[in-house]
Amino acid sequence: MLLEFGIMNQLVLQNVSKKFGGLLAVNQLDLEVPENKILSLIGPNGAGKTTVFNMITGVYPPSNGSITFKGKKLNKLRSSKIVARGIARTFQNIRLFKSMTVLENVLVGMHCRSKSGAIRALLKTPFEVKEEKNITRKSLEILEFMGLADFCNDYASNLPYGGQRRLEIARALAAQPQIILLDEPAAGMNPRETADLMDLIIKLRDTGLTIFLVEHDMRLVMGISEIVIVLDYGQKIAQGTPQEIQQNETVIEAYLGTGAKTAS
């Protein structure tokens, strides 16, 4: 699996397709996510980007093809197992646990990294008490990192929009993943928040994390991505550095329609 970048590819999709009834949402997609890079998947609305994320995280299986993570197949694993393997994600439409506090949301993300079960909780064994303390401390560190520590006791639903987006990332980070899938993290953010988010994503990459990004905000994508992959009607139409993609004729066509080419 040593490919063009000369490093190990963590996540590999081979010939992956997804059919919804008659609709081919993803069509024979080959995709490699190299370790510790920022990779972006872009494409017009309905191109199949979220579907790719859903297949990787086991929301539904691919109709065809295989998905491997660190050399092991992910097909047929249930989502929680996939998270435990080291793949965490956020959602395009924010899906927080609204009636829980900000801290508790992150603690839920720690579920697969902690052990105490019902019996330990009922008896409040020293192990449980210590583990609770431990995961609380780690969660607070993550919240601090995401700039949410001051809100840790607020209900998640009371956070401002940008805060909710960041909390989604915090919850995903709590699972201590090796790769994080961000589905339109900048959606609905103002330019300042987006700029902060860019810094944050780079900081995350620098801690050793692999970032797999789906995003419509081109300034963000072109600003921080190391590799960009373009999807159109479920098919990969281009792959390359941000500069290459910006000059790619097929991509411009896909985004602006065939009319644009003849006009220019």
Partner: peptide, 29 residues
């Protein structure tokens, strides 16, 4: 005690959004 434990939080997470809970690493079943 259950309510404020790891298991209790997982329960509430499932109540709030089962899919999100599963995708946050909670084995919902």
């Amino acid at each position: 005690r259950l309510d404020n434990s790891r298991i209790g939080r997982a329960w509430v997470a499932i109540r709030e959004d089962e899919t999100a809970a599963e995708l946050s690493g909670v084995p919902t079943t």
